[in-house]
Amino acid sequence: MIRVRFHQAALAALVLATTLPAQAHKLWLLPSHTTVSEPQWITVDASISNEIFGFERAYPVDGLQVTGPDGKPATVDNATKMHTRSVFDVQLEQEGSYRISVAQPGYFVSYKVDGERQRSRGKDADKLLAELPKGATDVKLLEVLNRLETYATLGAPNKTGLKPTGKGLELELLTHPNDLYAGETAQWKLLLDGEPAAGIKVELVPGGTRYRDSQEDWSVTSDDKGIVNIQWPAAGRYFLEAGTGDKNVSNPKAAERYLQYLGTVEVLPM
């Protein structure tokens, strides 16, 4: 059973590799604070940039959802798309943990015109297909679900607001994401539509790539229960990226779907 799933995932990844633009940039949220001891506003940036965490292009935050410690939507203000980043403020007013996520489903369409491969993307599949140039062949619609997440806590952490939604690629945060300390190990579980996802590679990049010669990235792969163990080499902010693909599309016009989890976590010194 597991072997079959592995095989399908590998196949999907292969197909995707030929469909998606080769130079997919990194998408991330960057919170001003993740651990606070007094009710306050924090601010979060959303940008598309391979430099971690240097702003380059604004990532739209239309799909923003902030879940509070009681599991209900929390207060957000000033959501704005700027030139190099989007920005929004989150009010931490209740004791406990907040999940800040941007998960906006979208579509990629690839096609050929005069033998040359072209691509376009958008939020509306029908509109994308309708706008294809005349004579487009080899049309392939791809569903994309990118989930950007970060977390913040006022006072003692809790997990009510961190419960997975059961949609797309997510993390079940066994170790609390606002309880990460240098030298310690976090254990998380990869979930695909709420089910444990085996064999998924999670790539990690420490923040501050501008100030060093190498990426210093590394990766871990989820075991047959979907579990990854991540040891934090030093205090700082980290970018996490995991992706997979399958044919479980929600729009029947799409051939495949591509899913990403893109997280930002902060590790404190102890």
Binding site: Q40, E95, T153, G155, M270
Partner: peptide
């Protein structure tokens, strides 16, 4: 009386402070 900076007493905050008020 500035609770805002209590988190900077990092070890105390993690071990006990954050679960108090």
């Amino acid at each position: 009386d500035q609770e805002k900076w209590l988190k900077d007493i990092r070890q105390w905050w993690r071990r006990t402070g954050r679960s108090q008020s």
